[in-house]
Amino acid sequence: MNRIAKEPFQFFTRQNLTYLLGKKAKNLNALLTGIKEIPLASIYQHTHHFLEQHEYLSPEPPNDFAYWITNVLQNNALGEEIAGIDLRQFSSLKDIQVRLVEIVENSIQHDPESANRNVPAGEEFHFMGAQTFVFPTQYIANDLMEFKQCLGSVSNYSIYYHMFEAPLFQEKSRFCYWIQNSLEDEKLALAFKNLDPYTQTLDNLKHNLVRLVRVRLEGK
């Protein structure tokens, strides 16, 4: 069943330019110091860019911190804990930063010797930042049918923006926000909210979003 929206939905797309900060960590202590000091854009870069760059991998690899801690520092327990952080529960990058610091500090407290164990030269953690560019696309949906068509046509970068970045930068650009407030479809909004974008590839995510809308259009 099609629904007309009170306000049209503008699809955006986004890209990142990655900056090198010239800072690196050769042990856990230095990583902790870095996590505390780097700008929030860097926290974003290190917790999200893996999702984009390795989007075809299934299961998804974890974030940069978890990857380095597990594969280079070879601290599997800490790596697993960092990889397991549910990023969806945080509404700000500051909160993600605080949680990362908490977990690493806790690990160091339990195993102080591990904090200064150095990795071999050349395998240090390199801190990076990002500048995000957001562009409006040609795709605008006035109703649920058009929304489904747009979802099927936009790039994965656009899906990425609305699912991962809008919650952090532009709440009103979340799909679920528009579905709830403009289409006034509580059921579909809830289905969108409940999708965990961090545990599937972008291609799958897009496919699942289209499927949810199609089912709704069929009146189910």
Partner: peptide, 21 residues
């Protein structure tokens, strides 16, 4: 190509984390 174009755009927006263009 994409990265170069973003870099060219960034030259006029130094220091901003998020740009809405």
């Amino acid at each position: 190509l994409r990265d170069y174009m973003l870099l060219f755009l960034s030259l006029d927006h130094k220091g901003k984390d998020v740009l809405f263009l």
